[in-house]
Write a protein that binds this DNA or RNA. Structure first.
Lengths: 120, 120
DNA sequence: GTATTTGCAAACGTTTTGCGGCTAC
DNA sequence: GTAGCCGCAAAACGTTTGCAAATAC
């Protein structure tokens, strides 16, 4: 992967964002720096950055794909009203950290990742 | 919401499925019972069933929306290789239940739901 | 010099919508 | 009878892809 102004800008924007933006949101933000960048370039770079492990995709119930530039360990809080995903960073007590941020937890869901029976 | 043959079939198919199908997968399955059903009707009914709380959307990193017809409390296991989502039902020990099903857990992620500061 | 990247535009796949006819109540 | 539902087809939307010009090394 060669260095490019456009890809650097996409990665920088994503790392500075804490709202898990979609491709078109990233496009609008990168455009402020590089006005003539195209949406196709943003999509292509997001794909490459994902393949190389610099960014990840956030699981969502949206039809659009949401991206995550912060790879440090943290927790997601989904608001049932505005559907925004808030990042929560804490080393120890999760419920305390959430309450301290003014987040009113109603439920929690744990998803497990690994290899299934037939893929092992 | 009035009763309809098409909506009943969509709900029945989804309740019988354990693979969190997409709209087009549901369409194909309902077609076996109602060959002339249209894809638009499937989408419209999925939207209504979701609004009324009969079904939910599974969060995924796919571009297609995945639906869930089983509202009883259970856990999701995502295979990193084949990307299938396995339902795990257990009352007590989660790790034991996963191992018993031949699922090799590598990591887990907990997501919290509720109301954020500004929506409260 | 050449392999990669870009902008542009067309293509593609998924989901939504408008319409006239049909159905449940 | 009428409000809600249907099938059909077109539109809308998000994403991917092909191409010739530009760029990194």
């Amino acid at each position: 992967m060669r260095s490019s102004k456009q890809r650097d800008a996409v990665l920088q924007v994503l790392r500075e964002s804490c709202d898990h933006p979609t491709a078109d949101m990233i496009f609008e933000r990168v455009r402020e720096q590089i006005p003539n960048i195209s949406l196709g370039t943003v999509y292509r770079n997001l794909g490459q950055l994902k393949d190389e492990g610099f960014i990840t995709i956030v699981e969502s119930s949206d039809t659009k794909v949401h991206y995550e530039g912060n790879l440090t360990d943290h927790i997601h809080f989904l608001c049932k009203s505005c559907h925004n995903i808030t990042d929560v960073f804490c080393e120890t007590q999760v419920p305390t950290a959430l309450t301290d941020m003014g987040l009113q937890v109603e439920s929690a869901k744990t998803v497990y990742y690994g290899l299934c029976n037939s893929c092992r």
